[in-house]
Design a protein around this nucleic acid. Structure first.
Lengths: 216, 216
DNA sequence: GTCTATATCGTGATAGAC
DNA sequence: GTCTATCACGATATAGAC
């Protein structure tokens, strides 16, 4: 991704330099978009955090929307870094990883808040993060379905597997949301553990099951 | 709540009158706040839907924030109307009701979208809907805990009951969110049914259970 | 690479005519 | 009860100096 301009001399040891500055800005933007939301979060606010004017920020990213995209990509990169390994865990390990993520998230509210605010806003018309969020959900469902294929075997009907994957993501996001709004009322790690176990057990129980809920 | 000015003559059969006009506006506002979000949704947009200028809307509600509150109250009233009875069902009936709500919601996207957009935005700083959403979650958790007390008996440890209630709300919201963003990938009623059953079974299984997830 | 200055726009809210 | 007109404000983005 090295798109350096030809005219600029590029010494190896650029002292502080663009890349670092851009990262500072992205981090500030993540914080602002997280606390104020994308629409209300202003470039002026972001710029102030890194000691610049908003014009300076625009010099680096061109537009507010481009900055948001940069934030989203940065968040994804951070997520991968969090994994001790380089790749997404598989099988039962994935569920262990999901629980550990929830436990870790309980101590980094900012990250959760940024994710929740942007995801929440993304359902609105023509929101710049919309496609990103959709892709993210699709990918996550895929990972979880793969894990379920390993844990439950191939006998598990496709629709049940999909419902389970959708439920896992849904319940993690939903619990995070309630936790953000009322931390005393919600135990993020333990509620998540309960839900993950419940869904996993139900998936393992698998194909045939009594249906207590249903017709009148 | 009759705060009519003394100077105005109030004939019983006011022909079209304020209350109806206000309701039109609230409905338009719910639609706009749902599609654009609260921050981006403008009074001008809302006013146009009912054939007025934004000044006209402000005459009725005083401020944009007050209009949002009116929308939230209106939505709650609608929710209660949806219930065939007047009161919230109890015990197992509550879970049946929750499933039916999800099934009904699959055919009224607008309502779901409004709820999701406002709830999503509410995590941001000083958002006018924040307290409303917090109260709503608190009340819902209470209802569900009560239902679980009936279904599972009083032996169920308090923390498990709370985790289950949090999970129920979380999974319903989370599945709705994924459905809004990608309706082909998510079967809202059936995924919800799966999740509700899973959580219910786990709650019934109750107090003692092996813990497949946990330490390293 | 960052600043100042400015263009342009849209908003929520107010005042007063009708 | 609704409109027109206007205010005050804050935003994104651009142009050009340094």
């Amino acid at each position: 991704m090295q798109t350096g301009p030809a005219s600029t001399l590029r010494v190896r040891g650029e002292r502080k330099s663009t890349q670092e500055r851009r990262q500072e800005i992205v981090r500030a933007a993540a914080k602002t978009f997280g606390t104020k939301g994308y629409q209300k979060g202003s470039l002026i606010d972001i710029a102030a955090q890194v000691g610049m004017t908003h014009a300076g920020v625009l010099h680096h990213f061109g537009s507010k929307e481009a900055l948001l995209i940069a934030v989203l990509e940065y968040r994804d990169a951070e997520d991968l870094e969090t994994l001790s390994a380089q790749k997404m865990p598989i099988g039962l390990d994935l569920f262990v990883h999901l629980y550990r993520t929830a436990a870790a998230n309980a101590q980094r509210e900012g990250l959760v808040q940024t994710y929740a605010a942007i995801t929440g806003e993304s359902v609105t018309e023509d929101h710049p993060a919309r496609n990103f969020v959709i892709s993210r959900f699709t990918a996550l469902r895929g990972y979880i379905e793969d894990a379920l294929r390993i844990v439950c075997g191939p006998d598990l009907p496709d629709d049940i597997r999909t419902h389970a994957a959708t439920s896992v993501i849904g319940v993690m996001d939903g619990i995070q949301l309630q936790w953000l709004l009322d931390k005393e009322a919600v135990d993020l790690p333990e509620a998540t553990r309960f839900a993950l176990e419940a869904i996993l057990v139900a998936a393992i129980a698998g194909t045939k099951r009594a249906r207590p809920l249903g017709e009148a």
